[in-house]
Amino acid sequence: MRSSSASKRSKQGNHYYFWVGVFIFIVISVVLSLYFSALQIDYTWRWYRIPKYFAYNERVEVKADMDGKVESIIKKDHKAIITVKGPQESASYTAPKGTLQVEKGDTIYDGDILATYKIWRVGILLQGLWLTLKVSVIAIVFGIVIGLFSGLARISSNPALKWTAITYIEMIRGSPLLVQIFIWYFVLGTLINNILIKHGMGQISALWFGVAALAGFTGAYVAEMVRAGIQSIHRGQTEAARSLGMTYVKSMRYVILPQALRRILPPLAGQFISLIKDSSLLGIIAIRELTKATREVVTTSLQPFELWFVCALLYLVLTFTLSMALQYLERRQLAV
């Protein structure tokens, strides 16, 4: 393949590089037309406002909430513990060393600043990105477990197992993820949380229902991958294993599944990438993943253009890196 395109290039010579130039031209014109049309409708591009949504330097003030005197300042590791003693009580405040604005013996009033320092905080967009990743990883782990069992049940000859698996798979694959999220949150969620209340137990947060919806959704697709993977193994393998006296379980465990797993991994990785994109729907139930975080920031900053492109770019970075990693692993597998 490579040699033919290289030779094509040398034969076409100028023609090839001309078209490369055309491509670059197209890309630049698309970008510029977007930029200038925005200006045309009096949209002010303010890219400088974006970085703070990634990380920002926050000014923290440690304030006293009582009247008293600074009794002691104990320095421990990188921190200093300020103890303020009032007429009835004492309170302790922690601050990093070197940021203190008071000394031992100072008189303190309620609201006085004891220390100020700056700390780097993770911005909303990065928090959203992190939550997106977290949710996706947890969901894919559970999804794989569910999918493995469902896939095995799907090919079982036991009708209870098989039809249950089919019902689950068809229901999940036949309805939109958004509807499933709503069902998990508004139907199952209400049910479960209300029953928990009746038994005096705590509530389960929306996050877990969201993860459950994603895991259940993924499980059905993984089940089909597991089924396809197992069924793609040559029948002769099962025959050889069984004719050696291995039971169904043993032949699955030592012969079929190890081979099937290698075939299941590539589509499985693709499913993980899809999951990262599907997690964007969780914002509907107030989970602050990346898309929801972007929506919130757009409302406060009124810079939808910049923010939506940044949001899409962040997803692209995630999916693209994973995609490349997957291709690298696949090539390594083939080489082995």
């Binding site: 393998q237 025959e239 069984r242 190890p258």
Partner: peptide
């Protein structure tokens, strides 16, 4: 049947060796 098969060896036309 697994017990019986343990005492009956079979060789196939397409070998069916375990590739992994």
């Amino acid at each position: 049947i697994n017990k019986v098969r343990a005492d009956v060896g079979m060789v196939f036309q397409s070998f069916n060796l375990f590739p992994h």
